[in-house]
């Protein structure tokens, strides 16, 4: 019964988010362009630190690292940021009144986020290819690369929800709480391979979920050996993803109980 209700809600919310994506089509295209432009800024910024003759090698790490981060940060920022819209527009109360799932509604924002992320990534690939002149294609399995990308998206959805719950508890917009997400790009082993990090950062990266999926993504696209080996990365990745999920669940219960007791407060302007 509860399962059927959840499925109906999911269908309704999927319809809603797709409808919004079409209704705000210019916004969606604009979003994809923004993703591309930020990727280009970071790619050029990284290349500015390297001599031109090393660009073909460096650009591989740069592209796949930034792609992984885009797929991590876009859903996270979207879900975390949309919480402000959700609360300020009074959608929280409406969902609460009909008993619909807040988490499901917020997490469905990954649909436009992933579409925008892919538009940006494909364009950024072309841009980098033109800049460097080749050599950044997938050397391994495209299917495996997609699986690891989806894994990163799942992890970032969980993290985005965690930020949403923290937003509800602190009345601070999710992206402003997202400092850790930015730090993870470097010390979390997303943009930089774990093996290249200082020892302390390596230990930190191994304790986070993203580094494992990112290591596996680099393995599937560039053939670089994952830090813990393939089996080790899969096992550690599953374990840390579970830990993230449980933390999000704990924060959800805290945020819901606080909101139901005291009401939700407006979330600040950025």
């Amino acid at each position: 019964m509860a399962y059927g209700r959840l499925l109906r809600e999911a269908r309704a919310m999927l319809w809603l988010h797709l409808k919004r994506a079409v209704r705000y089509k210019y916004g969606l295209i604009n979003w994809g362009v923004i993703e591309f432009l930020y990727m280009a800024i970071y790619m050029l910024g990284a290349l500015a630190f390297s001599p031109r003759e090393q660009w073909p090698l460096v650009s591989k790490y740069v592209f796949w690292g930034i792609l992984a981060w885009t797929m991590v940060s876009t859903p996270t920022w979207t879900i975390g940021g949309w919480t402000r819209f959700y609360v300020n527009m009074g959608l929280w109360e409406q969902h609460e009144a009909v008993g619909a799932s807040h988490s499901l509604f917020l997490s469905m924002r990954i649909i436009p986020a992933v579409i925008a992320g892919f538009i940006g990534s494909i364009t950024a690939y072309g841009f980098l290819l033109a800049e460097v002149g080749g050599g950044i294609g997938v050397e391994g399995s495209i299917a495996l690369a997609l699986i690891f990308l989806l894994w990163l998206i799942l992890q970032s959805t969980l993290y985005g929800l965690l930020l949403s719950y923290l937003s509800l508890l602190t009345s601070t917009p999710g992206p402003m709480l997202d400092v850790l997400n930015i730090l993870l790009f470097i010390i979390g082993g997303i943009g930089v391979p774990v093996a290249n990090l200082p020892r302390a950062a390596q230990l930190f990266a191994l304790a986070t979920p993203y580094s494992h999926a990112a290591e596996l993504l680099r393995w599937s696209t560039m053939g670089s050996q994952p830090y813990l080996g393939v089996a080790g990365e899969v096992a550690a990745g599953l374990l840390t993803t579970l830990g993230l999920g449980l933390t999000a669940l704990y924060a959800r219960n805290k945020a819901y109980s606080n909101a139901r007791r005291n009401g939700v407060k407006g979330i600040g302007r950025m």
Partner: peptide, 19 residues
Amino acid sequence: LMVFIMVSFGTAFGSLEEF
């Protein structure tokens, strides 16, 4: 954060001297 990201990401594959 912006400085941290650009310097860390850039120097992971290159150097501040080159920049």
